[in-house]
Design a protein around this nucleic acid. Sequence first.
DNA 1: ATTCAATGATATTTGGGGCG
DNA 2: CGCCCCAAATATCATTGAAT
Length: 294
Amino acid sequence: MSDHDEVIEVLEKTGDYRVLRRVDLSAIPVVDIPADFSLQCVVVLDAETTGLDPDRCSIVELALRAVWYDEEFRVVALGEPRSWLEDPGEPLSSEIQKLTGLNDADLHGKVIDAAAVMDIVSQATLVVSHNALFDRRVFEKRFPLLRNLPWACSCREIRWAERGFDGRGLGSLLMQSRLFSDKAHRAGADVDAVIVLLMQRHQDQTALAELVAAAGRTTWRVSAIGAHYDLKTYLKERGYFWNPRECFWWRELEESQLEAEKAWLASAVYAPRHYPSAPAPAIERITSRERHRR
DNA sequence: ATTCAATGATATTTGGGGCG
DNA sequence: CGCCCCAAATATCATTGAAT
């Protein structure tokens, strides 16, 4: 082992090589329920599916793993890695076979253990996945009873660029961290990859800490329904985006900004003199239970 | 009154990057 | 590949107003 380290050091010192190490979580203790009740738990989830359209595809593999961490967001224990295959009832496209290495025979007759899924997922304060917008939709379609879980997205809710990364895809983040996964696009391996990435520090803050903080925020989605079109420029200047499908300007705000925004809207956008019929902005509260849903 | 060009609001397209 | 999101670029459409 130490002679490997020496080789790595020699190679990297030349400046011509970067050495990638296999993702390895074996140094972290695996527990069922930790003895220390002060620990917090997130569950990392990854689903492999028959395609990319959450409305049309189904899950062929689901992996879950609990991550226990202390007050300083240090990962002190992991749950047993759990994953299940599931028969989608249709042949796998060659593309998915190539991507995941799975084939129809592997999946034949397999079913996800729904009771186990519920058990694991219910011990967590957060379900984490890489691009939760995809996994959440696919997961909730398969488990309609679990539509009210709190979710966090390790792809979008961690400022990877500020941490020195170029892209945000799992493979790219791993490689730039000098890591690789020998079973990329298998659910269990991808879950472990997310876990190592969450454990990384940047200026003394782990990615997990940043993610938990981001997911814990309550934000507000404010939609300026019925705003007079003359106000477009002001709304745009103020950071509103146009929703072309439903035709209104909207913006997402931090909790601390909400009152000021309401006041601004009341005076600048919904001044009564302009609107005898009094349209009103739509204000929706968004927490981890609502985010990454649509 | 009619036409045309300019203006500005809204729609559409495009591009990048994410997921299987 | 298809789909989604976001944002910037580009196209389209309606209105306005000046000129004829």
